[in-house]
Design a protein around this nucleic acid. Structure first.
Length: 463
RNA sequence: GCUCCUAUCGUCUAGUGGCCUAGGACAUCAGGUUUUCAUCCUGGAAACCCGGGUUCGAUUCCCGGUGGGAGCGCCA
C-alpha cells in the first residue's frame, strides 16, 4: 500500500512551495491508489500558532488537496516518549548534560580548524545509572543518539544514489527531554507508525535524511523510499522568499488567482509530462504525473507565466461564474452587467485586476479637452461627437447590446475617418487614453450614461 | 569553512549516443486584425557552462573545473 504524507509546521502562512510539495504527494497518492496523510508538525511550542494551522487546512481545502488522514504531533507525545525510553534502555541513546555554552565553544574550535562542527562525545561514556540519578535530581539534559561511524547511502527516487559520511555527524540530539522530541526523531517515529512508504519532500531536507536513516537503524525499522524535490527559487535563484514577492498561498488567492490555475502552474515547476501540453485538468495531472520525470535543479517562480496560465482559466470560466468572482473584488455598489464582464475578460490577469478595469464604467475621470483630438488635431471633433450622439440616441433602448451598437455606430463612420470618429468617442466615454473599445464602453455604460458623458465632452469643446 | 545537491534560450522545459541546422510555452521584438489598451493571428531574435576522456559519432555516458543552490540549531 502506497502511503505518503505532507508534514508542514504551523509557523507561518501556507507557502506556495508547500503547495507544490503537497500537490506532488497528492498526485503520487492518487496515481497509485494510495493514501495521502497530512501531519501537522507542531512540536515547537514557542513558534506554533493555531492561526497558521487553520490557514494550512483552509487552503488545502480551497486547492482541493484534501488529506485522507490527518494527525497532529502535539497529540502523539506518548509515542515519542516510549521510543525514547526504549532507545535509552538499549543504550542506543544517552543523556547529555553539556551546556549550550560548552557546545558553542566546542563548535567554534572545530570551525577554526576548518572542520565540520560535531559533538565530541563528552557525555557518551557517563555511566547510565549515574546519568539517571543526575536526571532525577533535576539537572538539565538532552537526549543524544549514538551515531556509528561509516557511510550512509540511499537511493533517492529523483537523484539516484546519494552518500553521506556519518563520521562527520557526531551524536545528534533527538530530544530536549523525554517529553519533547526534536524534529528528526518525531518525523521518523511517525513515518514508521503511519506506515509511510514514500517520503516526498523539499531538497532542503536532503541533509536530514542520513540522520533519519540512523534513527531507523537504531529502531530496527525499514526506511521508506525518499524523493527530494528541487527548490522553488527567486529571480536571483536563491530559495524562494518574501524578498521578491508573495510566498503565502492566501496572498495569491486574495489577488484573484484561481485555485486550479495555481495548481496547474505549480505542477509545471520542476515537473513536465511528455508532450507540449500546458493546461491540465486535475484528472489529466493524475494520469500524466510521474515522479521519475521530476527535475533535479531548482525552478524559478515566474509570475508572468502564472498570469498567462491564470488567464487561460479565466477565459474558460462561464460568464456567470466569472461575474460572481468579480463581485468579490469590487465595491458592493458597483452594479455590473454582462457587457462589462465581457469587455474586461481578456484584460484580466487575475480577478483582482477587475476593480481598476471596471472603474471606468462607474467614474468618469477628469481630463483635458485636448485628449479628445485624434492625433492631437481638432478636426471637427465637436460636430463628429454631436453626430455620434444623435446616432446613439436613435438606437432602441432594448437593443443597446454590443452587436447592435457596433453595427449602428460603424455605419456612421466613414472608412477613412475611423480615428477621427472613434478616438474622441472612446475618450469621451472613458476620459482616458487607454480603455476598452468605444463599442464595449457603450454597451457597458448603457444609452443614458453614454449620452451624458458625450455631452460632457461637447461641453468641454464649447469652452 | 565543511557536507551534499545541481547545470539546455531571460524563465519553465522537451531531449535519454546519430531523428538536433536542439522542439514547445511564457516573456520579448516586428507586422497584421474595424481608433487606444488588451485579446487573437503571423513571423523574428534567443540556449546545450568549460576542459578532458569513452565512442565511428556526444546536449546526451565518465572524470575534473567553474557557476548556482541548500544544509551545517536543545527550528521544522
Amino acid at each position: 500500500m502506497i502511503r505518503v504524507r505532507m508534514a508542514p509546521s504551523p509557523t507561518g502562512y501556507f507557502h506556495i512551495g508547500s503547495v507544490r510539495t503537497t500537490l506532488y504527494n497528492w498526485l503520487f497518492a492518487k496515481k497509485n491508489k494510495g493514501v495521502f496523510v497530512l501531519r501537522i508538525e507542531d512540536t515547537d511550542k514557542e513558534r506554533n500558532r493555531k492561526e497558521f494551522e487553520e490557514d494550512i487546512l483552509k487552503n488545502l481545502d480551497i486547492l482541493d488537496l484534501k488529506p485522507d488522514e490527518m494527525y497532529r504531533q502535539s497529540e502523539r507525545t506518548d509515542f515519542y516518549t516510549n521510543h525514547l525510553k526504549k532507545l535509552i534502555e538499549e543504550d542506543k541513546a544517552y543523556y547529555c548534560f553539556c551546556t549550550k555554552e560548552e557546545l558553542e565553544k566546542e563548535r567554534k574550535v572545530m570551525e577554526e580548524k576548518g572542520m565540520a562542527p560535531k559533538y565530541g562525545g563528552k557525555c557518551a561514556s557517563i555511566d547510565k545509572k549515574e546519568a539517571e540519578k543526575r536526571v532525577e535530581s533535576g539537572e538539565a539534559y538532552v537526549i543524544r543518539l549514538r551515531v556509528p561511524e561509516g557511510k550512509i547511502a540511499f537511493k533517492d527516487m529523483i537523484r539516484g544514489e546519494v552518500e553521506f559520511d556519518a563520521g562527520l555527524m557526531g551524536d545528534v540530539i533527538i530530544a530536549r527531554n523525554l517529553e519533547e522530541p526534536l524534529y528528526n526523531f518525531s518525523v521518523v517515529i511517525d513515518d514508521i507508525l503511519m506506515k509511510i512508504s514514500h517520503v516526498i519532500r523539499g531538497e532542503e531536507h536532503l541533509p536530514n535524511t542520513p540522520k533519519q536513516l540512523v534513527i531507523y537503524n537504531a529502531l530496527n525499522a525499514n526506511p521508506p523510499l525518499f524523493a527530494h524535490l528541487p527548490l522553488l527559487l527567486n529571480k536571483d535563484r536563491s530559495k524562494m522568499s518574501k524578498r521578491y514577492g508573495d510566498v503565502a498561498v492566501k496572498d495569491y488567492l486574495e489577488r484573484g488567482y484561481l485555485p486550479e490555475a495555481l495548481i496547474n502552474f505549480v505542477a509545471l515547476l520542476g515537473w513536465h509530462p511528455q508532450g507540449n501540453q500546458e493546461i491540465f485538468s486535475r484528472e489529466e495531472l493524475i494520469n500524466e504525473f510521474d515522479i521519475e520525470r521530476v527535475q533535479k535543479a531548482g525552478a524559478v517562480f515566474d509570475i508572468e507565466k502564472l498570469n498567462w496560465i491564470n488567464r487561460q482559466y479565466i477565459v474558460n470560466l462561464p460568464e456567470q461564474a466569472l461575474t460572481e468572482k468579480i463581485k468579490e473584488h469590487i465595491p458592493e455598489e458597483w452594479k455590473i452587467n454582462p457587457a462589462m464582464v465581457r469587455a474586461i475578460k481578456p484584460r484580466l490577469d487575475k480577478i483582482g485586476d477587475a476593480k481598476e478595469l471596471l472603474v471606468v464604467y462607474f467614474e468618469l475621470p477628469e481630463y483635458e479637452k485636448e485628449l479628445l483630438f485624434w492625433k492631437g488635431e481638432d478636426r471637427n471633433t465637436k460636430s463628429i461627437l454631436e453626430k455620434l450622439a444623435a446616432g446613439i440616441n436613435d438606437i432602441e433602448d432594448g437593443k443597446f447590446d454590443l452587436e447592435n451598437v457596433t453595427e449602428k455606430i460603424t455605419a456612421l463612420v466613414p472608412d477613412d475617418k475611423k480615428g477621427d470618429y472613434l478616438w474622441p468617442l472612446r475618450v469621451s466615454l472613458s476620459g482616458s487614453k487607454t480603455s476598452p473599445t468605444p463599442f464595449e464602453l457603450l454597451a457597458g455604460l448603457g444609452k443614458e450614461e453614454s449620452l451624458r458623458r458625450i455631452r460632457i465632452a461637447i461641453g468641454k469643446l464649447n469652452e
